[in-house]
Amino acid sequence: MPTFKVFRYDPGKNDLPYFQDYEVPDHKGMTVLEALYYILENLDPTLAFRSSCRMGVCGSCAMHIDGQYGLACETQVASLGNTITIRPLAHMKVIRDMVVDLDPFFAQYEAIKPYLIPKNAPGPREYAQTPRERKKLDILVDCILCAACYGSCPVVGTDEKYLGPHALLKALRFIDDSRDGNTNERLAFVANDSGIFRCHTIFNCQQVCPKDLDPTGAIGKLKMKSFWAKLTGKLKKSG
């Protein structure tokens, strides 16, 4: 029976966070999320953690599991040791236990104008996009906004204005979309003081992303694109 050492903290009530131990009877195929539900339902109804889909697609349950950022619902208990430490994502205010304040995370996502700004006016049919053009978006559109990358990034931890790996990945998703007509404005924006050049290429985000996306690579691409745009005089202002 593994022991879960679970981070507990209510800033309104506790001076400091602490860890609480729970013994959870495991079974074949049990996930960390199921273990947390076992605790809530049978051992301690005060535990707070987010979840919904339990199939790795809603992005609710990213946390720090035994030294690794990941999704609780996708992590098998059997893949971990006998003592399993659970903490919330870093760099965000803890509201209670595993629940952190995601407002800054979403504000940065919103800042990059995360919507198509079409090149052409829409007609009666779909914008034509070839499979080749669509393929460029392949992994970029799979982001579930789980914030695992954000929690793992030391730059996020030291510079609260930094746009963050999730927002920059999203920016590339639109820049690389053959239908979007806002490339230069987008490049100018991500090249601002809080943007791509703040990234120290530490690769944490690439390593932790549970969807195997590559925000580090995306930021690298954005750097090259904005560099090139500047050289060729397409970027008027550098923000």
Binding site: Y115, L116, P118, P122, P124, R125, E126, Y127, A128, Q129, T130, P131, E133, R134, L137, V141, F174, D177, R179, D180
Partner: peptide, 19 residues
């Protein structure tokens, strides 16, 4: 559905560029 495509929904495509 065309409206969703106009909003940028990344549907899979045929060679002629249609959904």
């Amino acid at each position: 559905i065309i409206e969703f495509e106009h909003w940028g929904c990344p549907f899979s495509r045929y060679e002629d560029g249609s959904i």
